[in-house]
Amino acid sequence: MRPRHIPSILQFTKLIWQQFAASWEEAGTKAIVVDGTVGNGHDTLFLAKLVGEKGQVYGFDVQESGLTNAQERLEKADIAERVTLFHAGHETVAENLPDGTAVTGAMYNLGYLPGSDHAVITRAKTTIASLEALLPVLTSNGVVTVHIYTGHEGGTAEGDAIQAWAATLPWKEFRVGRYDFPNKELNKEHLLIIEKL
């Protein structure tokens, strides 16, 4: 049985985002967020609810089947108008966002699309390219969460590279936190939280 007092990485991610969204409401911020890995749309739907009627979510994925599932999920919840989906890799974020877009936050859930071809995975090269393109347009106090999975082929290499990259971000400009379970032996996961000062 999972401990009741220590949240899972998914639960902790949602807690971070809910706290983040509360600060938007308090400041009257129109939230513009990026879902770098739409998958089947679970996170996209979560983000679309958080940004509210005035906000916007831009979602990216290379797999059309996932985008179709995500669109159906959003339409069923009657909030599809809050989301723009791109059938493109997240490394294209800079070229696909409307000119002058200031991004409030971004979420990445790495690995593969459950229920699909497990050979189609996120990779360090494109994930880091996406993050590097996103950080310059991230607003002050903007947050990026990156959920790293290592239980599939290529996952450990991607995770190690992204964590090494994040460790190089300048302290005067960013804070990088990490949440994980060091005693988990199989399928290790890490959550990176990047906040722009």
Rank of each mutant, 00 (worst) to 15 (best):
N109Y: 10
T13V: 12
S140H: 08
S65A: 09
A161M: 01
T68V: 08
V103T: 01
L197H: 03
E195A: 01
D180K: 12
L50F: 02
L192I: 01
G105Q: 04
Q71M: 10
R178G: 08
V83K: 09
Y108S: 00
L10A: 15
G66H: 09
Q18A: 01
D117M: 08
L85S: 06
N183L: 13
F12P: 00
S116M: 10
A124H: 10
L134W: 12
A167V: 11
Y112P: 11
Y58C: 10
A157Q: 15
H152R: 08
G41R: 06
T126H: 03
T29C: 00
A161N: 04
H118N: 13
E189T: 15
T168V: 02
V38W: 07
V176L: 00
A77L: 04
T150K: 13
E91C: 05
G105I: 04
S65F: 02
E26P: 11
H87I: 02
E53L: 14
N69P: 00
H118P: 09
H90T: 00
V143K: 13
P136F: 07
A167E: 13
Q19L: 08
A102R: 11
G155Q: 08
A102M: 02
G89D: 06
K49P: 06
L74V: 00
V51R: 09
I121R: 11
V144I: 13
S65H: 09
F46N: 00
L192E: 14
D117F: 02
L134N: 09
L67I: 02
V33H: 03
F20Q: 12
G151D: 12
G41Y: 08
H118E: 08
D180L: 14
L113A: 07
K54H: 13
G52S: 14
E195T: 09
L67C: 06
T104A: 00
E173H: 02
I194N: 10
T29L: 06
T44N: 11
S130L: 09
D99M: 06
G55V: 03
T122Y: 05
L113F: 09
E173T: 02
G36C: 06
E53I: 14
G155T: 06
N141E: 13
E158R: 04
T168E: 10
G100H: 06
A164G: 08
L67D: 00
E158Y: 11
G39I: 01
W24D: 02
N109P: 09
L50K: 02
H152C: 10
N183S: 13
K188V: 07
Q19K: 10
T37F: 13
T139Y: 01
N183P: 07
V38Q: 05
E189P: 15
E91K: 12
N187R: 12
T29Q: 07
S140K: 13
M1T: 04
L47Q: 01
L197Q: 06
F20T: 12
G159V: 07
V33A: 08
R175L: 10
G66M: 00
G177Q: 15
K196P: 00
T127N: 11
V176E: 06
I16F: 03
R123I: 04
F86Q: 03
Q71S: 07
I128R: 10
E26C: 05
A106M: 12
